[in-house]
Amino acid sequence: MPRSRKAYTDGRYGQIHYRFAGEKTDRLPLFCLHQSPKNSLEFETFLLEASRDRLTVAGDYPGYGMSDAPPSEEQASVELYAESMWKVADAMALDRIDVFGNHTGSKVAIEMAKQQPARVRGIAMVSAAILTEEERAQFADFFTPIPLDREGTRIKENWRRIVASAGPAWSLEHMDRSFLQTQMAGEAYEWGHTAAFAYNAPFTEGLEQLPHRKIILNPADDLQVCTRRAREMMTNGEIIELPDWTYGFLDVHAKEVADLLLPKLDAA
């Protein structure tokens, strides 16, 4: 079975791990940006499918997967995550790219385009967390870290959440891989959600002000309703409703996602 290749580069707080598939072609490389508290492994199936005609890359943010963590939660931010992904692009000598973010990764995608606008052609996203203050507080409360204990409360709850949100076609092996990614983040596992919630205003500003082509996939997940708020504020963007897809669709529908997304990015 094909596998992605793996490598490391240096970042602000240590090494940054990334995986990649395919080769450089006349198509722009596609950079995939993970949600919290996952890592680049969530894109493994999609990377292989999308690499049929281009280089595809997915990195681990600092503190996730096999990337070194910043010294404290205060240093963890969407800006740091975007900077770290540009470190990967530089290590691979990639001049211009398309970006594709999932949940937290959607905010990282916007920030990457803010940091180096000339190097980004198109921005694709899974969902757009455009939250009211009440919603932000509710999400922050839900994602408050669960302390470790000998009863395994955190472990049981994280597994319960994965099973509860899984789509019908997502296998137990897929769920186990998702659970592994959460566990790999250790005590930093909720830093990414905190960073994403803090990036609410810059995210909406980016949707409104960045001239880049923006494509938002809107599956049936917990951000489905708030994602639709982007329709009226986006410059040069579209929302694609996907009511039959839910969590795990990057595994289950990898080919369909590539077939849908890649031509749109190439036309950006």
Rank of each mutant, 00 (worst) to 15 (best):
A118V: 09
L131E: 02
A76V: 00
L28K: 02
D90E: 14
Q138P: 04
A166E: 03
A196G: 07
I97R: 00
I155T: 07
D53W: 06
H174S: 07
D259L: 11
Q224M: 12
T182N: 01
K255L: 15
A124H: 03
D259Y: 08
I215V: 13
F46D: 01
L207P: 02
S51A: 15
E256K: 15
A124M: 04
N102E: 01
F139Q: 03
G186N: 15
L265F: 10
A220R: 07
L207K: 00
K156N: 13
E83Q: 13
S36V: 01
R161K: 10
V108Q: 00
M125T: 05
N158F: 07
R3C: 12
W245C: 06
E205M: 10
N200D: 13
S171K: 11
E134N: 13
D53K: 09
T9K: 03
G167D: 00
P243K: 15
K38R: 12
A230S: 13
M66E: 10
E256R: 15
K107L: 05
G237W: 06
T235I: 13
V163Y: 08
L94H: 07
L260K: 09
Q181I: 11
F100R: 04
Y64H: 11
T194V: 07
T25A: 11
W245N: 02
A188G: 09
Y247D: 11
D68L: 02
R150Y: 11
A185N: 05
K87R: 14
A164N: 15
Q75I: 04
E42L: 05
V57A: 05
F20M: 15
N200E: 12
F46W: 08
I130D: 06
T132I: 09
V78C: 01
L217Q: 02
C226M: 08
V225W: 01
D141N: 13
P211C: 12
T235D: 09
K255H: 13
Y247S: 13
E232L: 06
I239G: 08
F143D: 05
E49A: 09
A196R: 03
M112T: 01
M125E: 05
D141K: 11
P147W: 10
W170A: 05
A198K: 00
P147L: 03
R136I: 09
L41H: 08
L55M: 14
A50I: 06
S4K: 06
M184G: 04
P2D: 13
T25K: 08
R54A: 08
M175D: 07
L180D: 15
I216Y: 04
A58E: 06
P145Q: 08
S40W: 02
Y8A: 03
V252P: 02
P37H: 00
T153K: 11
I240N: 15
A21P: 06
A267H: 14
D60G: 07
Q181M: 12
A118E: 12
A140D: 01
T132V: 10
G167E: 04
T104V: 04
T235N: 12
D141S: 13
V126R: 06
T246N: 11
D10K: 10
Q209M: 10
A268H: 09
Q116K: 12
A113M: 04
A258N: 07
F249A: 07
N102P: 02
F143P: 02
T246G: 09
I130E: 00
